[in-house]
Simulated scan of single mutants.
Amino acid sequence: MSADDDPEARIRDLERPLSDFARAAELTVPSAGAEGYAPPPRGRGIAVAVGAIAAALVIGAGVAVFLIAGGLTNTTPGHPSLPSGAAPAPSTAPIDVPAPPAEPSPAVPVPDSAVTVTIAGAGENKTVACAGNYVSVSGVSNTVVLTGQCAGVTVSGIGNIITVESTPRITASGLNNRITYRSGNPEVSTSGLDNVVERG
């Protein structure tokens, strides 16, 4: 019987190139201790899976505590809470609609604390419209008539005569000043000597 007729010999001949190739591959793969080669970490996939399971358990426990503590109950003061699965009844409570902001009256200007009208000098005779502003009068022997609504009036100096139509505050200092207001009941503050504030 020749080698071509023997099936086992034929199989050995066919397997020989495969075993030679495997032996050559083993020689080219570095061993675990070779320089520059680190073996793949073992158990890393298991650690990731265990971490994911632990995170899922923590999140699930948090959701359970939230639900048990009543985090999803629908309660409003004065209304009973609904049992789970119940549909809420339509609300019949009145709806509060905010009122539009009130506009200031055109007859009384809104005071602007940033604007102060200053009148100074000696022997002046003036009529000034307050228009909701603060007015400060100083100097000597001035006669001033203030019309409209003033935010506040301050008078200082000597011998000034002031007439105010309307103001919530009057402050007088200095010497011998006379302030007359025509309407309202202003808050009056005086200092100095012989200053008079009166209604007239």
Results as ranks from 00 to 15, higher is better:
Ala9Tyr: 00
Arg10Leu: 13
Glu165Cys: 00
Thr127Arg: 06
Gly36Val: 01
Gly45Tyr: 04
Gly157Ser: 11
Val48Gln: 12
His79Glu: 15
Thr76Cys: 05
Val196Glu: 14
Ala38Trp: 02
Ile119Asp: 03
Thr92Val: 10
Gly71Asp: 10
Pro94Leu: 06
Arg12Met: 10
Tyr181Gln: 03
Gly60Ile: 01
Ala86Ile: 01
Ala93His: 04
Thr147Val: 10
Gly157Cys: 08
Pro168Phe: 09
Leu27Tyr: 03
Leu67Arg: 08
Leu57Arg: 00
Val155Ile: 13
His79Gln: 15
Gly192Phe: 08
Ser156Arg: 07
Ala131Pro: 00
Gly36Gln: 05
Thr167Tyr: 06
Val117Arg: 00
Ile161Val: 15
Leu193Ser: 12
Ile11Asp: 09
Val155Tyr: 06
Asn177Ala: 12
Arg44Asn: 10
Pro77Glu: 13
Tyr37His: 11
Ser156Glu: 12
Ser31Ala: 14
Val97Arg: 04
Ala54Tyr: 07
Pro106Tyr: 00
Val110Gln: 11
Pro101Gln: 07
Pro41Leu: 09
Val164Asn: 00
Val164Trp: 03
Val108Gln: 04
Val140Ala: 13
Arg178Tyr: 12
Ala3Tyr: 09
Arg182Val: 07
Met1Val: 14
Gly200Met: 07
Phe66Arg: 03
Pro30Ala: 13
Ala55Trp: 03
Pro88Val: 10
Arg44Pro: 01
Leu14Met: 12
Ile59Trp: 09
Ala47Met: 05
Thr75Asn: 12
Ser191Pro: 07
Ala24Asn: 09
Glu198Cys: 04
Val137Glu: 01
Arg12Asp: 14
Ser19Lys: 06
Ala38Pro: 04
Leu67Ala: 13
Ser113Glu: 14
Ala56Cys: 13
Thr118Gly: 00
Glu26His: 04
Pro41Lys: 04
Arg16His: 15
Thr180Tyr: 10
Ala129Glu: 10
Ile59Phe: 14
Gly200Ser: 14
Pro30Asp: 10
Pro88Lys: 08
Arg23Ile: 05
Ser91Glu: 08
